[in-house]
C-alpha cells in the first residue's frame, strides 16, 4: 500500500521548521565531536604553540596508563552501583505504588520530583547532608558509631556520589517500573492467586519475568546516565578525591583537558566514551525492535 504524501506549498517551510534542531545538533554535537576526533590524533604543547600529528599514540598511551585503567574500573563499579541501587529502590517503590489505589497520583507526583533536580544540585544537597562537620547524616552516622568522612575515606566518597546519582535516577526508574507493572493484566495475578501463589511468589514468577524488557531498557539507560551525566555530581562534591578514588571517566576527560592541559589525551578519552555510548545505544535499539519477546 502506498502512503499518501503530504505536500507543503511553501518549499522553505519544512526546512525552516527543522533548522533549529539541525543547528543545535551541529553546534553542540557534530562540531565538538568532530573536534574531539581531530584532536585525539594530535599532540599540542601546553601553550598551544606547536601541534603535531601523532596518529593513535594518544590511545596507545591511554591503554598503557594504569591511572586510566583504574578510572575505567572505578566507572564500571560506580555505574553498576548506581544502576543497581536506583533500580532496586525504584522497583520496591513501584510495587508498593502499584497497590495503592487512593491518592495514587499524589504519591506518583512526589516520587517524580527528584528527577527535576539538576545533577550538580543533587550532588551539593547530599554533600551538605554528608558533610563531616555540619551534615545531619554524618552526625547521625557518628551517633551510630560510624566515623563518616568522605574527604579521607574513598569508600565513603564513592558511597556519597552513588547515593547522589542514584537518588535522582530512582524517580525515572520508578516511572518506567510503575508503567510496566500496570501494563500487566490484572487477571494474570488473579489467576496466579487462584493457582496458589502468594504475593511474593506472584511477584517473582509472574510480574518480574514480564517486567524483564523494562529491566533491560533501564539497565542501559542507567548505565549511560552513570557514565555520562554524573560529571556535575562528582565535580560539585568530591572533585575526584580522595586521591583518585572517585575519578570517573567523564571527570577525567575534563580534568586532563582543563587542569592537566593535555588536550590530545582528553580528546582520545572522549572518543572512547563516544564509542561506548554508541555501542550501548545500538544494543538498546536492537533490543527495543524485538521488544515483544515473551
Amino acid at each position: 500500500m502506498r502512503t499518501k504524501k503530504v505536500t507543503f506549498r511553501h518549499r522553505w517551510l519544512p526546512y525552516a521548521l527543522v533548522a533549529p534542531q539541525i543547528v543545535i545538533t551541529l553546534v553542540f554535537f557534530i562540531w565538538p565531536a568532530s573536534q574531539a576526533l581531530y584532536q585525539s590524533v594530535l599532540r599540542q604543547d601546553a601553550f598551544g604553540l606547536r601541534t603535531e600529528f601523532v596518529g593513535l599514540a594518544n590511545f596507545a598511551r591511554l591503554f598503557a596508563d594504569p591511572l586510566y585503567l583504574e578510572s575505567f574500573f572505578t566507572t564500571v563499579w560506580f555505574s553498576a552501583l548506581v544502576a543497581g541501587s536506583s533500580m532496586l529502590v525504584a522497583l520496591v517503590l513501584a510495587v508498593m505504588a502499584d497497590r495503592v489505589i487512593r491518592q495514587a497520583t499524589t504519591y506518583r507526583t512526589l516520587l517524580i520530583w527528584p528527577y527535576a533536580v539538576a545533577p550538580a544540585i543533587a550532588g551539593v544537597l547530599w554533600w551538605f547532608l554528608f558533610n563531616p562537620t555540619i551534615g545531619i547524616l554524618a552526625y547521625a552516622l557518628e551517633a551510630l558509631g560510624y566515623d563518616w568522612n568522605h574527604y579521607q575515606d574513598g569508600t565513603d566518597a564513592m558511597t556519597m556520589i552513588v547515593i547522589a546519582a542514584a537518588w535522582r535516577q530512582v524517580a525515572y526508574n520508578f516511572l518506567f517500573f510503575l508503567a510496566g507493572l500496570q501494563a500487566i493484566p490484572k487477571s494474570l495475578t488473579e489467576a496466579a492467586a487462584i493457582d496458589g501463589a502468594g504475593p511474593v511468589k506472584r511477584f517473582v514468577t509472574i510480574q518480574l519475568p514480564l517486567l524483564s524488557p523494562t529491566v533491560f531498557f533501564l539497565i542501559v539507560v542507567n548505565v549511560v546516565y552513570a557514565f555520562f551525566e554524573t560529571f556535575g555530581i562528582v565535580h560539585a562534591t568530591t572533585a575526584g578525591g580522595p586521591g583518585n578514588d572517585t575519578v570517573i571517566l567523564v571527570y577525567k576527560v575534563w580534568r586532563d583537558a582543563f587542569e592537566g592541559l593535555n588536550l590530545g589525551s582528553s580528546a582520545a578519552q572522549s572518543v572512547i566514551l563516544m564509542a561506548i555510548v554508541i555501542a550501548l545505544t545500538a544494543i538498546q535499539f536492537r533490543y527495543i525492535e524485538r521488544r515483544v519477546e515473551y
Binding site: 493484566p185 487477571s187 494474570l188 488473579e190 489467576a191 496466579a192 487462584i194 509472574i206 514480564l210 515473551y294
Partner: peptide, 10 residues
C-alpha cells in the same frame, strides 16, 4: 477459574 482473556502466563 477460566478468565475472559484466558489470563495465560505469556
Amino acid at each position: 477459574m477460566v478468565f475472559q482473556n484466558y489470563a495465560l502466563y505469556p
